[in-house]
């Protein structure tokens, strides 16, 4: 299934405002990060410090991707 991923801040340089990745059943959020790294190898380093949010909550990366909603790729915070 193709999953939509919204990107923020410096990630837009690699993936634009949003991208999509084909995800097989039983794959985890960590698998999805790996696939994004394959999509753009230059992003691999920053992807190691990204988190993923679903429904405005961070998800554990080792969890299987289950629901159908949009995923939000969150790079390290730099507010303040």
């Amino acid at each position: 299934m193709n999953r939509k991923i919204v990107c923020f801040a410096g990630l837009k340089k690699f993936f634009g405002d949003e991208t999509s990745v084909e995800v097989a059943p039983e794959e985890s959020y960590a698998n999805l990060l790996e696939k994004l790294g394959e999509l753009n190898p230059e992003a691999k380093e920053v992807l190691t410090s990204c988190r993923i949010a679903v429904n405005e909550k961070f998800v554990p990366l080792d969890e299987t991707i289950k629901d159908q909603t949009t995923l939000f790729l969150i790079p390290p915070s730099s507010g303040g």
Binding site: A53, S77, G79
Partner: peptide, 14 residues
Amino acid sequence: IIDRVKNEVPIWKH
């Protein structure tokens, strides 16, 4: 509060 906001909240500085 400011430490947690800077470190955890999804806000980015350009």
